[in-house]
Amino acid sequence: MEAIGRVPGRVVGSHRTKFYGLSTCVWCKKARQLLEELGAEFDYVYVDLVEGKDREAVLAELTRLGRGETFPTLVIDGSDCIVGFKPDEIRRALGS
């Protein structure tokens, strides 16, 4: 599994979504599957797979958003956070 990457998605001109997850976490797996089903474009990072300075940088991003280290966290359009696997909220936020 890649630590960091982007899924191009099928929905053109939609939201900018960032997915923060753990590679060992089942709820993160479900959240990612849903994003893929919805055809969303998203950047992802599996925080347990990044180390050292890179991990600190990712955790600093989460701190800036006012969120603790809870996964999965989805950040939609830079500010809208969904913490935990909440399929209804994810569908609503991505407008589908």
Binding site: L22, V26, E69, F71
Partner: peptide, 22 residues
């Protein structure tokens, strides 16, 4: 999938850390 995650963490850290926490 969770028990597999526990084993992945055991390999990484030497103990079965929660698969859904960092």
């Amino acid at each position: 999938s969770l028990t597999h995650g526990l084993l992945v963490n055991e390999g990484r850290y030497g103990y079965r850390a929660c698969p859904c926490r960092l």
